[in-house]
Design a protein around this nucleic acid. Structure first.
Lengths: 365, 365
DNA sequence: TCGGATTTGTTTATTGGTTGAATTATTTGG
DNA sequence: CCAAATAATTCAACCAATAAACAAATCCGA
């Protein structure tokens, strides 16, 4: 089951090794030489040279001055991701704003656009038309900069079906909305918390496995396992907001009662931070008991309240996580703020290029 | 991050395609011909022939009479997993018994040994010595049958560290017990619920993604995602028994209060099935909200009580799962009974051979 | 200042593995 | 009994990685 169901031919070998070289460069702090890449990957210098040539010719890698080195020997050519390579268009629609950003292959945010305004007042079609305008503006600005966009991804606060269909976005009032092309680019749509988690993953010092919890009006979570987003069987994982905390507690708009959202949603946090922390702690304990995650990142509206929430959450974790005595659970605030989802969306696009450079090179002839 | 960090050479291509061919045969209901494998995998008939030759020579595949076919043309040679190929030794230690079984490459149970007796009365060393005797007996019987054992795996009701170290097995009274070789074979140790989930996966008509819940004295769960067991960051996933159901409820021996185990453990089910069903439903709703699993399998002590528990669980699921209206959650009883963990352990071994036949062929020269 | 040591990067012949086309093998049906 | 059909094998071509030799560019010590 595990082994991917596809045959492998020689070209797949090349595709894999191209990706391997590109990722090695991406994960290097300094600018590695071809020889350094060969040492890091286990490939031959000759092979690395050939692969690097392809990547440089395709505009994915750039040859720069080498990292200064001491000692004898021919000086190396430094390699780095090309800032002029394909870029990603990250989009977001949330309750009170729309946003777009352009992130280049190196991960740098090149352009950023935000249009404030209550999206609930617009029909889905009108909201998407406005977003298309924003996206088109972003694309034009990017192209004036010499950037080619490899694709677009959109973050929405709701349940998304595989592809481009928003099944339900309760806080936007959307139901079964299909997302069209944006700025002439195909769009990948995903849940806001999922993409924010990916954004956090790219941030500095990020762990490869963690739970990202986003506390807005609703509460969502993104589960990142070993650098990969876990989306669940139908793409609807991470609905922590409707995990039951107090079985006979407050009724929830979802029809259930005692949902976390009723105790740790935006208003609840403002009204009683201690209650919110306890409820969060109970729900997070369940996550850790089930998934054995060592790191929890609090984002969205929780980040500014982190200091006030922390000890209450940790008390419950300590009490309710079975393995708390064997290994600690680390709690920290998100670093990216409200841009996380949009950044994560753009990351999805450039991650696609980084993971399959051969595909990009082939289609970008 | 995703792309495995290893270079790929031509031999990796062959290794992958060998596994692909073997899995294709394994997943075929009938006995496929080389031509059928080629059609199914996308490889050339010439390539498939070469790969099959290796697998037959290595004793992994057997050529049999073809599946009857009508029409003209040269008759095909039918291929199937060889029942004489490498077999797996599955072991289990539980509170009141030890067990061992030999499963051949086709998945058939060839031999089965059970030794009843309260394991809590024995020291870990004595229990393991007794298990070694049972394993040696199983190995001897298997070898008399012409079977070669590819390895062994052991199921224990507790938390296992990567490798062979049992950190805690509360119901056995074990703490930091290292498991030695059994019958001269290296042993992979894993949690009982995890392995039972894998056993269930192999069973007839199994879904590739599901949650397996095992209700013994404690309650454990195995999370199977797309045919793969999810073990968590440290291998301690699935501790559903200590998910909080009623935050201020009954105190638990783990130090917390309101754990599922207090409401749906073996005694609790006997005392009040309705309470157990409600508590299970609440905890399972949390799992589905977090992981978006469409199938839940109730095993261990829950299987015989399934009829009595079902409606109570489903009521809570219906009420508390956010996406219940969009897609159903299926509940079913496990099919394998108390052998599931032991079978799953043996499956781990033969799964290793099936997923890396090249490795097996190389070491079995 | 020059020549060896050293490290980087490229060239070339070899090897391993898949492909595609042609070939052989074995059956059914007219 | 021969044509059609299907299965499996053989063989030349191709692609990609490897290993080893070679070229390039620097440092360092005499």
């Amino acid at each position: 089951m595990n082994a991917s169901r596809a045959p492998v031919r020689q070209s797949s070998v090349r595709a894999h090794n191209l990706a391997l070289v590109l990722q090695t460069v991406a994960n290097s702090a300094n600018r590695p030489s071809r020889a350094a890449i060969a040492a890091a990957t286990g490939l031959t210098r000759a092979t690395v040279s050939a692969l690097v040539d392809d990547l440089v010719a395709g505009g994915l890698l750039a040859e720069l001055d080498p990292a200064p080195r001491t000692g004898a020997g021919r000086p190396a050519a430094g390699l780095a991701l090309s800032p002029d390579g394909p870029a990603g268009l990250g989009l977001e629609i949330n309750v009170d704003y729309q946003a777009a950003c352009v992130v280049d292959l190196t991960g740098a945010v090149r352009h950023r656009f935000v249009a404030r305004g209550d999206q609930r007042l617009l029909s889905p079609a009108d909201a998407l038309a406005a977003l298309d305008d924003l996206a088109t503006q972003a694309r034009a600005t990017a192209e004036a900069d010499g950037l080619v966009l490899a694709g677009a991804a959109l973050a929405v606060p709701g349940l998304v079906a595989p592809g481009d269909l928003v099944r339900v976005a309760p806080n936007l009032g959307w139901l079964d909305v299909r997302v069209p092309e944006m700025a002439g680019l195909p769009v990948t749509v995903d849940n806001e918390a999922n993409l924010a988690a990916l954004g956090e993953l790219r941030a500095d010092g990020a762990e490869p496995t963690f739970l990202y919890v986003s506390g807005e009006i609703g509460i969502g979570a993104g589960i990142v396992l070993d650098g990969e987003l876990y989306r669940g069987g139908r793409g609807w994982s991470g609905e922590i907001g409707h995990v039951t905390v107090y079985p006979d507690g407050r009724p929830c708009r979802c029809g259930s009662s005692g949902c976390l959202e009723q105790y740790a949603g935006q208003e609840a946090v403002a009204a009683d931070p201690d209650l919110a922390a306890a409820a969060l702690g109970i729900a997070l304990s369940a996550v850790v008991n089930l998934l054995d995650l060592g790191v929890i990142v609090l984002g969205g509206g929780y980040a500014p309240e982190f200091a006030r929430l922390r000890s209450g959450i940790e008390a419950e974790l300590h009490r309710r996580v079975l393995t708390a005595g064997l290994a600690p659970v680390t709690l920290r605030a998100a670093g990216l703020g409200s841009d996380a989802a949009m950044r994560g969306a753009a990351d999805v696009v450039i991650r696609g290029v980084r993971e399959d450079p051969a595909g990009w090179l082939a289609q970008a002839v």
